[in-house]
């Protein structure tokens, strides 16, 4: 493949041929004896908005810093826009707009001055600079603070100034490291809206540990924990395929009859089944990932002449999934064991 041209390959998750804008292969980054990122691999196609998820300290920022050329990889390789991050760092940096986790911008410059400086630094031609800065400020919604000193604007505005900086040279790829960190709900909403708007003509890697946000803006998530890749795929699919759901049923019948009807259902984790007897018997249990026995259970209860008061399968959330594959794994097991006892 000629250097400098994005690779055309089979998309890893989409199942169709796509142009890979970010390709990470067996990437490892060590700081002395500590392994921050451990042989992770993933690819991001053109136009994708990918959420980069992981708890604090998972290795998200380190991975992003390798992708942006700030840190070299210890081993493995990474390409951005078809350029090797190690050997063609300058070309990589020309192709990306990067918003770091903490937006450290010069407090003694005015917002407009700072963005003009950054546009010049990023090679935006002089005749286009004014327009580029105006456009970036409009997209980030910061026109009203253009003449304010950066040091005098609020944290939320500063974050948006950082976003405008990432956008000013119209990069193909945006790498946003926790862009909503420390923002109030309104500001978070605004940033998410901007990211959704940008998704039309950018490839976006959006890192966060706030799951709802990732779910809101991303069509795909890459989950990293303790430096290792834990999952890669569409959020709903990942959740449905790997996290147990909760089944709840209340029916007018004997508790033993309800127990037998539920326990023999396909996918029910029998050890989690808990039945309460009474005028209306109730049962709760966990269902194996991918299983949906609600229809079958409804039919059985109907055939047995039991009036069903409640029958529901609570699908797991991305949050539960996240717990399950990161530190919360043990807690989820505890939940299951608690339900069983």
């Amino acid at each position: 493949m000629p250097s400098g041209a994005p690779a055309v390959t089979n998309g890893s998750q989409q199942g169709f041929a796509s142009v890979q804008m970010i390709r990470v292969s067996e990437l490892t980054k060590r700081f002395g004896p500590t392994t921050a990122v451990d042989r992770i691999s993933f690819e991001i196609g053109r136009g994708e908005v990918v959420g980069f998820l992981g708890p604090n300290g998972a290795g998200k920022t380190t991975t992003i810093r390798v992708l942006t050329g700030f840190h070299p990889a210890t081993s493995g390789s990474a390409e951005v826009a078809g350029f090797d991050v190690q050997k063609q760092s300058l070309e990589v940096r020309r192709s990306i707009g990067y918003l770091p986790q903490e937006v450290p911008i010069y407090p003694d410059l005015r917002v407009g001055e700072y963005l003009r400086y950054r546009a010049e630094l990023k090679g935006v031609p002089a005749r286009e600079r004014r327009g580029a800065v105006a456009r970036a400020m409009a997209k980030a919604g910061i026109e009203d603070v253009a003449r304010k000193l950066v040091g005098h604007v609020s944290h939320g505005y500063r974050q948006r100034v950082g976003l405008a900086d990432a956008l000013v040279a119209r990069p193909q790829i945006l790498i946003l490291d926790e862009p909503t960190s420390g923002l109030d709900p309104n500001q978070r909403r605004r940033i998410k809206q901007v990211v959704r708007e940008l998704a039309d003509d950018h490839t976006i890697l959006f890192s966060s540990h706030i799951l709802a946000e990732v779910q809101d803006v991303s069509s795909r998530v890459v989950v990293i924990h303790r430096g290792a890749l834990r999952a890669d795929g569409a959020p709903k699919q990942l959740v449905a395929d790997s996290t147990p759901a909760r089944l709840r049923v209340r029916a007018r019948c004997a508790g033993q009859a309800l127990r037998e009807a539920v326990a023999s259902l396909p996918g029910v984790l029998a050890e989690t089944l808990q039945v309460d007897d009474g005028e209306v018997a109730s049962a709760r249990c966990m269902v194996a990932p991918g299983g949906d026995p609600a229809t079958e259970l409804g039919d059985r209860l109907q055939r047995a002449g039991a009036a069903v008061h409640e029958l529901a399968v609570d699908l797991p959330t991305l949050e539960e999934y996240f717990y399950a594959i990161t530190d919360g794994r043990d807690e989820l097991r505890d939940d299951i064991e608690e339900a069983a006892t």
């Binding site: 050329g69 300058l90 940096r93 990306i96 990067y98 770091p100 911008i105 630094l121 990023k122 090679g123």
Partner: peptide
């Protein structure tokens, strides 16, 4: 921390 934005710019 502005060294990060400086060193990840194309310069």
């Amino acid at each position: 921390g502005s060294i990060e934005t400086l060193m990840t710019a194309p310069i």
